[in-house]
Design a protein around this nucleic acid. Structure first.
Length: 277
DNA sequence: GTTGAGCGTT
């Protein structure tokens, strides 16, 4: 309802893989993460826990749930350490499930170690996942109504400070007078190839960390050297099971720095239109 | 107006 965008509650995670995204700005929303993660796989859900004890915006981390492990893994390799909103986010597989369950590689393991040795018979539904891919092609499911994370829903970027009435209602969106032309520059915002060829844009890590403590100076975690995934080989390896993946089209990434101190009149100034009284 | 290690749902 808040970060699910059209969903009320945790989506059915049959065999999805959750990624934990850390070190993101408190203003980074699923909208910003979606285009990034969606490029590397099929994102089924993105959840950003928010701190209701404080501002209530976000806790600084998010959970991106993928449909397949391969894509999730790739996303980790690619997006891990990527600069987002001026911060280097850390992408890794989640360790615990929504229900505090043990998770292995993002996938929720069966908490029941099947103590009943006699019922050890492997269930036929064990390979139900591959079964789906076998005939469903899994790719055609993207252009269906299942696109919960279509740009249609992902266009709210100004909810950074919408205190009251955080109505996530679709009506609220259009009501906000979002004149954002959908046919805006379709220029390829992000490209998977950019990750390898563009080198690391982490040249300037969060060195300008605003977290400069007056007393104690925490060790700047400017990316662990061990995390350097020199995966960008000269040879373009199509790890994607999909022969073609031009999903760049669905990357309405808005590089607009909303962080700018300059605020634009969205619609919050309905009364400041005519000072003449 | 802030905060920065971490594992989650209405």
């Amino acid at each position: 309802e808040m970060s699910r965008f059209g969903r009320s509650g945790p989506p059915p995670i049959r065999d999805t893989y959750s990624l934990l995204v850390l070190n993101i700005t408190f203003r980074t929303t699923a909208d910003d993460l979606f285009p990034l993660f969606d490029k590397y796989g099929e994102v089924v859900d993105i959840y950003i826990p928010r701190d209701r004890s404080r501002t209530g915006d976000s806790r600084g981390f998010a959970f991106v749930r993928y449909k397949y492990e391969d894509e999730a893994q790739k996303a980790v390799d690619r997006l891990d350490g990527r600069l987002v909103d001026g911060r280097e986010m850390m992408v890794q597989f989640a360790k615990y499930g929504p229900n505090a369950e043990r998770i292995q590689k993002g996938r929720i393991m069966e908490t029941v170690p099947k103590p009943r040795g006699r019922s050890r018979s492997r269930s036929p539904r064990r390979g139900y996942r591959d079964d789906h891919r076998g005939r469903d092609s899994r790719r055609r499911s993207r252009s269906r109504s299942g696109d919960r994370y279509g740009r249609d829903r992902y266009r709210e970027r100004d909810h950074h400070r919408r205190s009251r009435s955080r109505s996530t209602s679709p009506d609220d969106y259009k009501r906000r007078g979002r004149d954002r032309s959908p046919s805006r520059s379709r220029s390829r915002s992000y490209s998977p190839d950019d990750d390898r060829k563009g080198g690391r844009d982490s040249l300037s890590p969060a060195r300008r960390s605003t977290s400069r403590s007056p007393r104690k100076t925490p060790p700047p975690r400017e990316g662990s050297p061990a995390k350097r995934n020199d995966d960008r080989s000269p040879a373009k390896r199509n790890d994607d099971r999909s022969p073609v993946r031009r999903n760049d089209d669905r990357s309405p990434v808005r590089r607009n720095d909303d962080r700018s101190p300059v605020r634009r009149n969205d619609d919050r100034s309905p009364d400041s239109r005519s000072p003449s009284t």
